[in-house]
Amino acid sequence: MAASLVISAPASGVGKTTLTLALARAWRNRGLNVQCFKSGPDYIDPAFHAAATGRASVNVDSWAMDRGTIAHLVSRGADADVVLAEGSMGLFDGVAARGVSGTGATADIAEMLGWPVVLVIDPSGQAQTAAAIAAGLRDYRPGVRLAGVVLNRVASPRHEDLV
């Protein structure tokens, strides 16, 4: 399998789709074959993914799908140079009752596939608390590996230093 990343966040509206599309298009423009996936049931983001990559994006959902189905769908990225999976809502957000192979949380997919997570954090109205949120997400579930953090909507260089 290609180099793979899960793009997630503490919540919706933080910039997951923007980062996913920017990375997908930048890598495609560099001549790489990029395969996108979307965690959960969604049709809008996968349509954007397809426009950015030139390849159909595929939904994977731990609540509705068993591990074999997810593995089969993910195999569509076998010929890709880079795989990006865009999460839904917050990293650990799913339903209360476990489904077929998880709660539907993006973290289920990241852990199941062993793909590292890049968090998008919007520190608007925060400073050091944004780092505490990142640390909390990193440590919340041992099987989920954090690869990095992207800060979106940083107000100034001073704000960035405080975060």
Rank of each mutant, 00 (worst) to 15 (best):
Met1Tyr: 04
Val6Cys: 09
Ile7Pro: 03
Ser8Tyr: 05
Gly15His: 09
Thr17Asp: 02
Leu19Trp: 01
Thr20Val: 11
Ala26Phe: 10
Ala26Trp: 10
Trp27Thr: 13
Gly31Arg: 10
Asn33Arg: 05
Phe37Ala: 05
Ser39Gln: 01
Gly40Arg: 09
Pro46Cys: 07
Pro46Phe: 13
Pro46Ala: 07
Ala47Thr: 02
Phe48Cys: 06
Ala50His: 02
Gly54Asn: 04
Gly54Trp: 13
Asp61Gly: 08
Trp63Ile: 06
Met65Pro: 01
Met65His: 09
Asp66Leu: 11
Arg67Phe: 06
Thr69Phe: 12
Ala71Cys: 09
Leu73Lys: 13
Leu73Ser: 06
Val74His: 11
Ser75Gly: 05
Gly77Ala: 14
Asp79Lys: 01
Ala80Gly: 05
Asp81Ala: 12
Val82Ile: 15
Val83Glu: 04
Val83Ala: 15
Leu84Ile: 15
Ala85Ile: 15
Ala85Val: 15
Ala85Tyr: 02
Gly87Thr: 10
Ser88Phe: 07
Ser88His: 09
Leu91Glu: 11
Phe92Glu: 04
Phe92Pro: 06
Gly94Glu: 00
Gly99Tyr: 01
Gly102Asn: 04
Thr103Tyr: 00
Gly104Phe: 08
Gly104His: 05
Thr106Ser: 08
Thr106Trp: 08
Glu111Asn: 03
Met112Arg: 11
Gly114Arg: 13
Leu119Lys: 01
Gln126Ser: 08
Gln126Pro: 00
Gln126Glu: 09
Ala132Pro: 04
Ala132Val: 12
Ala132Met: 10
Ala134Pro: 02
Ala135Gln: 11
Leu137His: 05
Leu137Asp: 04
Asp139Asn: 14
Pro142Ile: 09
Arg145Leu: 13
Leu146His: 04
Gly148Leu: 05
Gly148Glu: 03
Leu151Phe: 14
Val154Gln: 03
Val154Ala: 12
Pro157Gln: 08
Arg158Thr: 02
Arg158Met: 01
His159Pro: 00
Glu160Ser: 08
